[in-house]
Design a protein around this nucleic acid. Sequence first.
RNA 1: GUGGUUGUAGCUCAGUUGGCAGAGCACCGGGUUGUGGUCCCGGGGGUCGGGGGUUCAAGUCCCCUCAGCCACCCCA
Length: 443
Amino acid sequence: MTRPNPISGFPEWAPAQRMIEQRVIDRLRETFELHGFAPLETRAVEPMDQLLRKGETSKEVYVLRRLQADAEDPSDSGLGLHFDLTVPFARYVLEHAGKLQFPFRRYQIQKCWRGERPQEGRYREFLQADIDIVDRDALCPHYEVELPLVIADAFAGLPIPPIRMHVNNRKLSQGFYQGLGLAGPMAAIRVVDKLDKIGPAAVADQLRDALGASEEQAKACLALAEIRASDASFADAVRALGVSDPLLDEGLAELVAVVEAAAEHAPGLVVADLKIARGLDYYTGTVYETVLVGHESIGSVCSGGRYDNLASAGDVRYPGVGLSIGVSRLLGRLFGRDLLTVSRPSPTCVVVALPDEGDRVRCMRVAAALRGRGIPAEVAPAAAKYGKQIRFADRRGIPYVWFPGPEGEPDAVKDIRSGEQVEADAATWQPPAEDRRPRIAGA
RNA sequence: GUGGUUGUAGCUCAGUUGGCAGAGCACCGGGUUGUGGUCCCGGGGGUCGGGGGUUCAAGUCCCCUCAGCCACCCCA
């Protein structure tokens, strides 16, 4: 049997990393529920026409096919693995609208698949954590303020650098480009989004060459893209550019509301950044992008926006706003920079040493007593010399070794980091709270 | 998907014009007869990412392929 090889883009993390991931998931789930988001899991597959309906190119979608497809049976099932959680959620809302109470808020933490070329923090199978709020017919704009606050709350409980959310508004951008008389406002949005990466000169070139923008128009686009403020002052800067359009006014008002409300509830969290665009074309209002302060090179770890047209059946519309945390992307890049670690790679807190194979029953009783009070414990694998049994714990980062006392004598527990050993009773002994479970910590 | 770059022990890496695959750390055993980490002695470990080619001879040269990373693209 030859040794199996990894599959590109399908990472399998070590136990220590998986423990960190699970702690992060726990924190996210707890926060989302604290804010009243209901849990939801959708199936892994969607009909291809649903998946291809909005934005995504077919190449990125993994399709599902039965191996035992006979000649009659077209091998293509018409199903593909979902590439995000927003599209499946929109489908779910339409399908179950009659059973849901609106406004409906849900969170969803699931794997997604995308056939792109992998890199660090960019995988073909990855975990995403989404929150969305949808309503029927109309969605109140205050939800566009609430979501960033929920995300900030979730991140605040993790030992990672603080976040900063960059926000823009699609109506603002689109209205501005329209008012400027630019053909293809969506294309302009995509070009301007690259400003940080390719620089103002290259953006101006692309606006001229690809979109036929004039020198003046290109200049105005760059001027808009450079506007950035943590308060409502950006609105004056936009108006000073002298472009007028009803959609622009609408977008400006909405973005001012988001920025002002965020400044009230979480100062420093949100900054208006008018070059932010987001690739997906289903966004129609506020768009968000999130960076870790001081680690901007990691890229956006949470993004989303408002969508008014993703879910609609006949005359009924279900506008929504959502944010997705790229859990795999975030963790992959934090791991690569050693920015997130765990205190030990094993959940075990106590190894119960085994004096003799004949003592196994007694040792298992000790371990059970500890577990019964929430202290993770395991019995040593074999009745080796105590030095070996201590080493067994040491190698795994397990902090305590328990020594069953000889007949009639008390047990003892040793902290193998300090070497300190004390008499102990399995029915009452407590480790310090910080040793009970593995803990995650930042750099 | 396009282009670039890297791949030798569990880890970090040497390996000369093509000439017997190595070091440090880690691991296992002993010194140390139930209390580890230091020290000393010994030991096990390799499809040189995989396949093909050139050659008397390939870790080394050529082709293909797989995987990691980087850029583009896209975006979590």
